[in-house]
């Protein structure tokens, strides 16, 4: 098996993550333990080869934190909604399979968006069209086209939050252009 070597710089985020995990699992952050963790991380990274994740080259910590807080809020609200739907509607629940076309073309953003929307109760990813970044989502308790539209907006907002946190500059530009067009369309 041939493999392209990954430059060390690209592996640093993964290494840092593995070392933090090592420390967390031992609940010991002393230098000796972390150095041993780093040694193991280096072995793991080199023996168990994975294709590198293509990061967007941007990281906005504030937007990331905001995203996490919003995410937990969303999950909390939606959990109670699913409970309510289960109790009140049960077998009469109407669902929908919706296609949502994302704006980003990056695998990382599409995967993360799909992941996030899957974690928020009431929706799961049934299929993905990678060439057009389209997610096909099964959504609980969608009865009308208006509900479907609301849901689509939610998915796009999640994508936007992710792009603001870790998306590339080009993706940020797409978001900004979209906003601008929406505003112009609104005032016209």
């Amino acid at each position: 098996m041939t493999r392209t070597r990954i430059p060390l710089l690209k592996e640093i985020p993964l290494l840092v993550w593995l070392v933090i995990m090592w420390g967390a699992l031992w609940q010991d952050y002393s230098a000796g333990n972390l150095i041993f963790g780093l040694a193991i991380a280096l072995v793991v990274v080199n023996v168990f080869y994975l294709p590198p994740v293509e990061l967007g080259g941007r990281l906005n910590v504030l937007a990331g934190l905001l995203f996490v807080v919003k995410f937990i809020g969303n999950v909390a609200v939606a959990s109670f909604q699913v409970l309510w739907v289960a109790v009140a509607k049960g077998p009469r629940t109407k669902n929908a399979v919706l296609a949502v076309r994302l704006r980003s073309r990056s695998d990382l953003i599409v995967t993360a968006t799909g992941h996030t929307i899957s974690l928020i109760p009431g929706s799961l990813v049934v299929d993905v069209d990678r060439s057009t970044s389209t997610l096909y989502l099964h959504c609980l308790d969608i009865e009308s086209p208006e509900g479907a539209e609301r849901f689509r907006d939610q998915v796009l907002r999640i994508e936007e939050g992710l792009i603001r946190s870790i998306g590339s500059k080009e993706e940020m530009a797409i978001i900004r252009d979209g906003k601008l067009q929406a505003q112009q369309g609104g005032t016209r």
């Binding site: 959990s79 049960g90 669902n95 928020i120 109760p121 799961l124 049934v126």
Partner: peptide, 21 residues
């Protein structure tokens, strides 16, 4: 949710999601 939802896909929602929270 597992008991009351009608089909596989809607049961998947109940089976996986509320646990996250």
């Amino acid at each position: 949710g597992m008991l009351r939802f009608p089909d596989l896909l809607s049961r998947m929602h109940a089976a996986t999601k509320p646990q996250v929270f």
